[in-house]
Amino acid sequence: MPLNIPPTTFMRAPGEAPGSFALESAMDELAVALNMDPIELRLRNNSTAPIGKNLQWSSKHLDECFRVGAARFGWAQRTPHGRVDGDWLVGMGTASALFPALRFPATVEIVLRADGTAVVSTSGSDPGTGLLTVLSMIGGESLDITPDRITPRLGDSAYPAGGMSAGSTATASAGTAIMIAAAQVIDDLLALASAPGAPFDGVDVSYAEGCVVGDGRSMPFGELLRALNRESLSATGTSAPGEELTKHSFSSFGAQFCEVRVHRWTREARVSRMLGVFDAGRIINEKAARGQISGGMIWGVSAALHENLEFEANGRPANGDLAGYLLPVNADIPEIDVEFLRYPDTLHNAVGARGVGEIGIVGMAAAVANAIYNATGIRVRHIPITIEDLLVD
């Protein structure tokens, strides 16, 4: 219906994050009603395919995420009614996290230079997600050279179309195209090397560690290009979703754990520990991946306990500034523990990676709410959860 408020738009995990709060809170309620451990309930209902689809998951290790996470988080010490620590009521909660693994059409150009370096270019963007580093790492791996010899380039419409940095797709999309472009430029390089009059004229050649190899000799590609009076050699590679979509379903998975402390008198709720264990295929850049997941988990805590936009009767935001709109600060966020299971999903793409940019937020708000219930016995079915929600007679 028409409302006198601004239109909404999407942030991280636009449907999955709010949807999972309802679903994963309901799973926790069901576990309580059945007098069953919440993890055991989820393990017993582990699925091999999405509901309503016959295509099985290409790779799913959510059960292992929960088992690894439970051992690491000390879930065995959890009791159905939390515990008391002085003036604090302490509870543990958990929730599943799922985010679809997608990829978009992408084209990448690779240029081998006579100075022994390479350029990897695509017109995608890097809004803080680490895609530039991914281009260097996958480019270096595909060309069998160190990443510091790669110059990554993004953000110019003169470069080949690189798709969107959205939907947690950039690494899988661009990375697969890099591998195709690298294979092509290496084939072209070998053809040049063995052509008439070339340094390896008539010789069977191969490529390894950035060099053309043949007849007992090895020549770096930069030296070869200089010998041929060429400044560079380029090739493009294009990748797009294909027939794999008719064979499997694809998703990243995670198990998220949270410990919350609620003050028995003031009813202040504070998150004291967080852990996320994720099955997201191959992890290309460990540091960036942990940063993405940690950022998502912080945002999930913010959704659970802080963020709420209020509107006046005329539709004007009542707290449209940082004085009234609550966001977490360092004191609100404990150390975040992140663990990855490392199962490359080569059925999804040749790189084996799935997205990590959004899944970190998905189950966090529900895990916080479930931990609050475990600590206090109060079930809150909306977010953010405020002090008023936790007041008792």
Rank of each mutant, 00 (worst) to 15 (best):
N35V: 12
M36Q: 15
M36K: 15
M36I: 11
I39S: 07
E40D: 15
E40Y: 05
L41D: 05
L41Y: 12
R42T: 06
R42Q: 09
R42A: 07
R44T: 09
R44P: 03
R44V: 06
N45M: 08
N45G: 04
N46P: 00
S47G: 00
T48E: 14
T48P: 00
T48N: 13
T48A: 14
P50D: 04
I51V: 14
I51P: 04
I51A: 13
K53G: 09
K53E: 15
L55C: 04
Q56A: 13
S58L: 06
K60C: 15
K60Q: 13
H61K: 14
D63Q: 12
E64C: 00
C65K: 05
C65I: 08
C65L: 09
F66N: 02
F66D: 02
R67Y: 00
R67H: 09
R67L: 13
V68R: 13
A70Q: 04
A70L: 05
A71Y: 02
R72M: 12
R72K: 15
F73C: 06
F73T: 05
G74A: 09
G74P: 07
A76T: 12
Q77C: 00
Q77S: 15
R78L: 08
R78Q: 13
R78E: 10
R78F: 01
T79K: 15
P80I: 10
H81M: 07
H81F: 10
G82I: 07
G82E: 06
G82M: 08
R83H: 10
V84D: 10
D85P: 00
G86P: 07
G86S: 09
G86F: 07
D87R: 14
D87K: 12
L89V: 03
V90T: 08
G91C: 09
G91P: 07
G91R: 06
G91T: 09
M92G: 04
T94Q: 12
T94K: 00
T94C: 14
T94I: 15
A95N: 05
S96A: 15
A97H: 05
A97D: 04
L98V: 14
F99D: 04
F99V: 03
P100N: 09
A101Q: 05
L102T: 14
L102I: 13
P105E: 10
P105I: 10
P105K: 10
P105H: 10
P105N: 10
A106T: 11
A106C: 12
V108D: 02
V108C: 03
E109N: 11
L112Q: 01
L112T: 01
R113V: 00
A114L: 01
A114Y: 01
D115S: 08
T117Y: 02
A118S: 07
A118T: 02
V119K: 11
V119S: 11
V120G: 02
V120L: 06
S121G: 07
S123G: 14
S123D: 11
S125Q: 13
S125D: 10
D126V: 06
P127I: 12
P127T: 10
P127L: 13
G128T: 06
G128I: 05
T129L: 06
G130L: 03
G130S: 04
L131V: 11
L131G: 00
L132E: 13
L132G: 15
T133A: 08
V134A: 11
L135S: 01
S136L: 03
M137P: 00
I138D: 00
